[in-house]
Each structure stands twice: as structure tokens, then as C-alpha cells.
């Protein structure tokens, strides 16, 4: 069992006898510090999607499926193609990548985990931490160096995340893929 707070894109959870792959997670805070987790799910049997909300501490039944370490190879619309150590290729639908799609870039070397359900590649889990280059962000507005003032930045691959005000174009930054949060400049 995992708490809703611990679930991340690529996990598969069981409800009413059906496996659901988690495509996107969004954690926010309600009053009195309680976490609220919104999940975008896809039913692996019916191929239908839904959105659902949980309290952060709600327990969810995650199921362990076959996984393989793979690297990203190329994009053949609408499929992302990954390759294992023995050069076997696996296609994953773009939709099933969820948040991870924002971190996929040509030539990336990070090892991802591809999850299989009944022999089919159904999702991809990124490493917890990745490094990406900032390709666009506004100059520092307030000269803040504390790291508490944030601003949007576009990273290689086209995704946008909030970064500390002191981050500049060309900086390489560490990102927590579970939350999409900026961790530090490297």
C-alpha cells in the first residue's frame, strides 16, 4: 500500500478489480496543512481515463508489475520509444507518460523504468532527480538570492517549472520529478 502522497506517475493502482496507471499527480495543501492529491488515471482494461482526488494520507493499493531499466531512444508520434540493455524497443503512448513527457529530451542519458502490463509497455517512471538546462526565464526581478522568491522557467524539452529568482538562462538545474519542483542550481 502507498499513501496518495507517495504515488507518482507510472505507478499502477487497483480499484474495484481494475488496474489504473497514474498519468499525472498534483499535490496541493488544504487548510491546516492537510495534503490533497489529484490524480489523472487510465484504466488499463477499459482504456478509459478519469480524474480523482484523495486526502494525502489515504491508502492506495499499488500493484507491482514487471519493470525494465530503459533509456529513451526517439519519438515516433504518438509513441515514445525506449530501449533496454539488450536493444529491445518498447513503445509507450505519449498520453501514458503524463508529467514525465516534460522531461524527455533527445539524447538524454538517464535510465528510466518502463512498466509492463500483460506484456505491453504502459508507463514510464523517471529517475527521482534529473538535471536540465534552463532555456528561457526572465531576468531576476528583485535580485533575490534567498531561493524563496520563485519565477517560471522553460527547460530543455519545453516544460515549464518554478525556479528560484536567481536562476539564469543557460543554468543547469536539478529537478525532483515526483513533484516537478526545482531543487538547486548545479
Amino acid at each position: 500500500m502507498k499513501t496518495a502522497h507517495e504515488v507518482r506517475p507510472g505507478n499502477v493502482i487497483m480499484f474495484e478489480g481494475s488496474p489504473w496507471v497514474v498519468q499525472k499527480t498534483e499535490t496541493t495543501r488544504s487548510g491546516r496543512n492537510a495534503a490533497i492529491v489529484k490524480l489523472k488515471l487510465k484504466n488499463l482494461l477499459l482504456n478509459s481515463g478519469t480524474e480523482t482526488t484523495f486526502k494525502g494520507e489515504d491508502k492506495l493499493e499499488d500493484i507491482i508489475l514487471d519493470r525494465l531499466d530503459c533509456t529513451y531512444s526517439y519519438f515516433a508520434d504518438p509513441m515514445y520509444v525506449f530501449m533496454d540493455a539488450e536493444y529491445n524497443q518498447y513503445d509507450v503512448e505519449a498520453e501514458n507518460l503524463g508529467d514525465a513527457a516534460a522531461y524527455i529530451v533527445d539524447g538524454m542519458e538517464e535510465t528510466c523504468q518502463v512498466t509492463f502490463y500483460e506484456g505491453k509497455a504502459i508507463s514510464v517512471e523517471m529517475p527521482t532527480t534529473i538535471v536540465r538546462e534552463v532555456i528561457y526565464t526572465e531576468p531576476s526581478a528583485r535580485g533575490d538570492t534567498s531561493g524563496k522568491v520563485m519565477k517560471p522557467a522553460t527547460i530543455t524539452g519545453g516544460g515549464t517549472i518554478s525556479v528560484a529568482d536567481f536562476v539564469k538562462v543557460g543554468d543547469k538545474i536539478e529537478i525532483d520529478t515526483r513533484t516537478g519542483e526545482f531543487k538547486k542550481r548545479v
Binding site: I36, T52, K59
Partner: peptide, 10 residues
């Protein structure tokens, strides 16, 4: 985006 969404219970 969260208002009115279901939460599937065990």
C-alpha cells in the same frame, strides 16, 4: 480543478 471530483475508496 479539484471541486466535485470523486475519490475512489477501498
Amino acid at each position: 480543478g479539484c471541486h466535485g471530483l470523486p475519490s475512489m475508496q477501498a
